[in-house]
Amino acid sequence: MVELREARPSEQLSAGAVGTVVDVFNDPPTAYEIEFTDADGRTVAMVRLRADEVVQRDGHL
Rank of each mutant, 00 (worst) to 15 (best):
L4Y: 02
T20H: 08
F25W: 04
I34S: 05
D38Q: 01
E35N: 06
L61Y: 05
T43V: 07
V18I: 08
P29Q: 08
F25P: 08
P29L: 01
R5I: 08
G59R: 11
V47W: 13
D52F: 02
R8C: 13
Q12G: 14
A51T: 05
V2I: 14
G59N: 11
Q56N: 09
Q56Y: 08
P28I: 05
L61E: 02
A31P: 09
D27E: 10
E6M: 15
V44H: 09
E3K: 11
R42V: 07
V22F: 05
P9M: 06
P9G: 09
G41H: 03
G16W: 03
V18Y: 01
L61N: 12
A39D: 04
D52Q: 07
T20L: 04
V54M: 04
D27T: 06
V21W: 01
A31Q: 10
V54Y: 02
D23E: 05
E6F: 07
P29S: 06
S14T: 11
D52P: 00
L13R: 15
F36H: 14
E33Y: 08
A51V: 09
A15T: 12
Q12F: 07
H60K: 13
M1V: 04
S14F: 08
G59C: 05
I34G: 01
R57M: 07
M46K: 13
R48K: 12
T37Y: 00
V55W: 00
G16V: 09
L61P: 00
R5P: 02
T30M: 07
R5F: 00
T37W: 00
R5Y: 01
R42A: 04
